[in-house]
């Protein structure tokens, strides 16, 4: 099956997923409310108690919330696939002479739209609480693209999970257990250098820290004083490169794994 067919079929599946956003806007409302809530909670509850050298905490915070939110957004991929499995829709797709990777390509693609929408909402909320982009337009654009790219890679991990678990509820609960530590033991909400021993090492090499650091730099939210305090490790010195390595690594491993799992997928 050619790559052109995979993309063509993937677009048809993506369109189907996007129709759901239109028909069940409630889902979208929840997707968008939680980042707003996070921005407001952190900005106003912790805003005054967390000190960042040389900058306002709210400015520091936004990139972290972006990273956390787009990673949570990837659970949509898993939940959506698990639901399609449960409802037998995957069986229907698998009985058609369509490309074997199209359902996954379509699903991960349509979930970029969710993430894009939540980034827009978060950015607007951020602007309201005092966050500013202090870099060039191109840099900022790069920051947003990197966040989306990282989330896209992550959604392939979730795709595999979605094909394995027995029901969508499991995805939601399991992803909580994984994503919360991943996004908290990082430089998302507090600087990594503030964390104790082993947590600090974990945070330094956590790709979530890298993508957050990269976004901060690209948005111009990293004044020299704050930058000086960032732990001196390769991952955080080269956050864009380190993030891209993770993106490629995740895709190389999880795209084939997910596709092969899809081929064998048995409905529950």
């Amino acid at each position: 099956m050619s790559a052109a067919h995979a993309l063509q079929d993937g677009a048809i599946v993506a369109k189907r997923n996007l129709i759901k956003i239109k028909r069940v806007p409630e889902v979208l409302v929840f997707v968008l409310i939680s980042p707003i809530m996070f921005v407001l909670l952190f900005a106003y509850v912790f805003g005054d108690s967390i000190e960042i050298p040389g900058m306002d905490y709210r400015e520091f915070l936004i990139a972290g919330i972006f990273a956390q939110t787009v990673i949570f957004g990837s659970t949509f991929t898993g939940a959506g696939l698990a639901e399609d499995m449960q409802k037998g829709i995957i069986d229907r797709f698998r009985s058609l002479p369509m490309s074997r990777s199209a359902v996954l390509i379509g699903r991960t693609a349509s979930d970029i739209v969710y993430n894009l929408l939540s980034i827009v909402i978060m950015a607007l909320t951020g602007l309201l609480v005092g966050w500013r982009i202090r870099s060039s337009f191109l840099d900022a654009l790069g920051g947003f693209l990197l966040l989306l790219l990282f989330a896209y890679a992550f959604s392939w991990i979730m795709a595999l999970m979605g094909l394995i678990v027995p029901s969508p509820e499991v995805i939601n609960n399991a992803s909580f257990i994984v994503i919360f530590p991943m996004t908290f033991i990082a430089n998302t909400f507090v600087p990594a250098e503030n964390l104790p021993g082993p947590l600090r090492t974990f945070a330094e090499w956590n790709p979530v820290s890298a993508v957050t650091q990269a976004a901060r730099e690209l948005f111009g939210n990293m004044p020299p004083e704050a930058a000086a305090a960032v732990p001196d490790v390769w991952s955080l010195d080269h956050p864009v490169a380190y993030t891209l390595i993770w993106v490629v690594g995740i895709l190389v491993v999880f795209v084939p794994l997910s596709v092969s799992r899809y081929k064998k997928a048995a409905s529950k």
């Binding site: 129709i19 069940v24 797709f93 058609l96 369509m98």
Partner: peptide
Amino acid sequence: RERIGLSGQYAAVDEHLTGFENLDMIGRLY
């Protein structure tokens, strides 16, 4: 797969799509 049609034990239709959209999607995938 090009020569068969399958209607599984449980109706595998997408709840959020209309009847037309469901069939049109299948047609496009064929």
